[in-house]
């Protein structure tokens, strides 16, 4: 009978034996949260009706809703992905590529001149 594979203490300590799914879930969720922040910031700026909806705390205006909703989207995405990929080995190169693209969306859409450009201001 084949002996079960044992994990050396150094391998266990280094995290080599863990599946990359949980890490990939956290990385992709951070990208999704960043993109959500940018998209919500743009929507808040461009559409007065959305701005009204995003005022969760009057004194902070739309920023309260933009940041709260981005954090909620990030955490929900993280929760869902972490459950799906808890023991999975996922293609990290593709996850990174998508995460960086989403992060870039977040960075660009929080930059006021780019926001203004998209709105034709």
């Amino acid at each position: 009978m084949k002996k079960p594979e044992t994990i050396s203490p150094s391998k266990a300590l280094s995290g080599e034996t863990l599946p990359n799914g949980p890490g990939a879930a956290a990385i992709l969720a951070a990208g999704i949260g960043s993109a959500a922040l940018g998209i919500l910031a743009l929507a808040n700026d461009a559409f007065p009706a959305i701005n009204k909806l995003l005022i969760f705390y009057g004194p902070s205006g739309g920023l309260s809703g933009v940041s709260t909703m981005a954090v909620v989207i990030w955490l929900v995405a993280w929760f869902i992905l972490a459950r799906r990929w808890a023991t999975a080995a996922v293609p990290m190169a593709r996850v990174n590529l998508i995460s960086f693209a989403l992060l870039a969306v977040g960075i660009l859409l929080t930059f006021p001149p780019f926001m203004d450009l998209l709105q034709g201001k």
Binding site: G15, N20, G23
Partner: peptide, 13 residues
């Protein structure tokens, strides 16, 4: 916290 030094294997993490 999850991977410790295992961050380097694979390098994408």
């Amino acid at each position: 916290a999850k991977y410790g030094a295992g961050l380097t294997r694979p390098r994408h993490l």
